[in-house]
């Protein structure tokens, strides 16, 4: 608990910066909807008829002239990428920062045990991602209030629930990288988040690589799909959860077995 609290304090600033930036961007984008509403009817037809581009962004499934359609295709894009980047960065730094900052000697010689260190840090990471979600949802709901309309609750909750699962999955992979490295791999973590997003876009357009949808967590947490049918494929979510669990367990094993730098 001591280390968990310590980590929460150490990451509070980063959580606030990221959640305010992403949340405020979503809020601002939703406020735009009201201003654009009158021109949206003409745009909706054009956007839905742009071939692969429409498929990639889900514009063929939801109508951009409705508040949930606008949210699912425009706002959710900012939230998904911003959230994935925050989770990736948070996961990539939380363990490796000790060796990079030469504090591992201080921390690991306190009577906590390495497994408990990994456990406390992983718990802090998961709560930070959850809080990021909560703060952003707060911004988004205020944005919906400003736009004068709310999306269907079930779809909205399902989307944010799966976004949390997606962020945990990406963050957990980065957490595992963090457990193996002596230095923070922030660049690699952010690159991984963006790469997985690109894989999602591409596997929606190219039938030959459609099976990559089982690799990228952006697929099962896609807003257009969820707002069209809030019953996503359980296999993909199961794979995502299994990856998350495996990364957390392997991180504990790797970190407790390897030599720590001073």
């Amino acid at each position: 608990m001591t280390l968990w609290k310590h980590e929460m304090k150490m990451n509070l600033k980063s959580l606030l910066i990221w959640s305010i930036c992403v949340g405020a961007s979503c809020f601002g984008c939703l406020l735009l909807f009201k201003g654009l509403e009158s021109t949206m009817d003409e745009m909706a037809g054009a956007y839905a008829d742009m071939g692969s581009f429409s498929v990639a962004l889900g514009l063929d499934k939801v109508a951009i002239n409705t508040v949930e359609g606008f949210y699912a295709t425009e706002v959710a894009l900012i939230f998904a990428i911003g959230g994935a980047m925050f989770a990736a960065m948070c996961g990539a730094g939380i363990l490796a920062k000790e060796e990079e900052g030469h504090t591992s000697e201080f921390l690991s010689t306190l009577p906590m045990g390495r497994i408990n260190i990994v456990g406390a840090k992983y718990a802090a990471f998961a709560v930070l991602v959850f809080l990021f979600q909560v703060i952003c949802i707060g911004w988004i709901l205020v944005g919906f209030a400003g736009a004068g309309d709310f999306p269907p609750a079930k779809e909205f909750m399902m989307y944010h629930g799966l976004q949390f699962v997606m962020q945990l999955e990406i963050g957990s992979v980065c957490f595992l990288i963090s457990a193996c490295c002596k230095k923070r791999q922030t660049g690699a973590a952010l690159g991984l988040a963006l790469l997985l997003y690109m894989v999602d876009l591409m596997c929606r357009i190219l039938p030959d690589i459609k099976n990559l949808k089982y690799i990228t967590p952006f697929y099962y947490s896609n807003a257009s799909d969820i707002f069209t049918d809030p019953n996503p494929e359980p296999v993909m979510i199961g794979i995502g959860m299994a990856v998350t669990l495996a990364c957390a367990v392997i991180s504990g094993i790797v970190y407790s077995k390897r030599d720590l730098a001073a």
Binding site: T2, L3, M10, G101, T103, T109, L110, P111
Partner: peptide, 26 residues
């Protein structure tokens, strides 16, 4: 009680918080 050759702590923390953190961990 261990004192490493490189006495490194978390730069943003206050001294009293580091001392308290070490005691709480025990």
């Amino acid at each position: 009680g261990y004192m490493p050759s490189e006495a490194m702590f978390y730069p943003s923390m206050k001294v009293k918080d580091v001392i308290k953190f070490a005691a709480d961990a025990r």
